[in-house]
Design a protein around this nucleic acid. Structure first.
Lengths: 200, 200
DNA sequence: ACCCCCGGGTGACGGTTGTCACATCCGCAC
DNA sequence: GTGCGGATGTGACAACCGTCACCCGGGGGT
């Protein structure tokens, strides 16, 4: 019997996934959590074999939980199930030692299958995504990432500078570099590109 | 017996929702579709009592399907189930005469409940969202919406102008108006604001 | 015929952005 | 210490952006 904890913020999807997994005779859903913190608490209380978690959740993200699990050496496998086919996310997930990374686009049967694979020590990584993940690395450094994020919220160079205690000229230099590295035409395009790669 | 067709692009969520609804003894899931066009075809082939559809799908969106249903006077109720708590979306959905509008944040039991309500002729609208929907209306006209959308993709005024056969000066005028109407500081902020309201 | 509104355009203004070359400072290797 | 590299600033330039006042032409009303 595979004992599972489910973390997913959208209640309807959470309920639906629970129903889906409960159909499998060798899987038992111990419980579910709607945000990162409670997932972390339930993880320690219920001691499941496998944690199935979304990435984007209030509080802790699924990636952060995976990192914590590794750091505390908890005996639980982690499977990420997410909407986002972003190479950067998979990259970080693998660095955090997750057992599986599935897309919500994948057929529903894959989930139970992946659960079994991971439970017996294997890995279940979405194959087409695995390729992309190693193809191109994040070219941005911390400053560029930081500045690009703020620029993407509509802030001007001066506003960003004020926030980071840097001169507006420096901000423009960083933005210019980021735009160049990403092959974009302006900050807006750069932001979108970086975002869809999972780099921001 | 309530006969249901399900339209949802993410396969895993689609499978999970099917599992969820199949647990109910008075509900029968006739089939499901992964995009707007096939949902529309299945709708005519299977003639379900109720269509449960996501909004964001490839091809036709759920809102467009609802509009078509109304235009063709098909004898099917439509329930929108979406991630997006955007007043503008609900507004358009109601204009299209949908029977229900639920958020994926809502508890899973609500879905079956809403299905029954709508099937017997009632309406199931997320209550807190219903309030917001009438609070503030979309101030943008078609041109502004169109231009803002393109600007949000990183295109310059000249590029947008070329695409719409308008002069770059006119584009700037539209953007300026949109920025003003939304109380934003620049096009980036305007885009974000409009987007999160569901106006784009 | 008259007026007025509406979609579109123009030209000018000051500010912002993107780019580049160069300057400064600090820390670290040798 | 010398030298180098990274992080931060500066100043200049052209292009772009946001704003505004104003112009034009074509429908509707009346």
């Amino acid at each position: 019997m595979i004992r599972v904890l489910l973390a997913e913020d959208q209640a309807m999807v959470r309920g639906a996934l629970t129903a889906l997994l409960s159909l499998e005779s060798d899987i038992e859903v111990l419980g579910s959590a709607a945000d990162g913190e409670s997932a972390w608490r339930e993880l320690q209380r219920l001691k499941p074999d496998v944690l199935v978690t979304d990435i984007e959740m209030p509080g802790l993200t699924g990636l952060e939980i995976a990192q914590r699990v590794r750091r505390h050496e908890l005996p639980v496998k982690v499977i990420i199930v997410t909407t986002f086919a972003r190479p950067g996310f998979l990259r970080r997930a693998l660095d955090a030692g997750v057992g599986g990374y599935l897309l919500k686009d994948a057929p529903a049967e894959n989930l139970a299958e992946a659960l079994r694979t991971v439970h017996r020590g294997g890995r279940a990584i979405d194959p087409q995504l695995a390729l992309e993940a190693w193809s191109d690395a994040d070219p941005l450094n911390d400053r560029e990432r930081q500045v690009l994020r703020l620029a993407g919220e509509g802030q001007s160079a001066s506003e960003i500078g004020a926030q980071l205690n840097l001169s507006h000229g420096t901000i423009r230099n960083y933005l210019s570099e980021a735009i160049g590295k990403l092959g974009a035409a302006n900050r807006i395009e750069a932001y979108r590109l970086a975002r869809q790669k999972g780099w921001l």
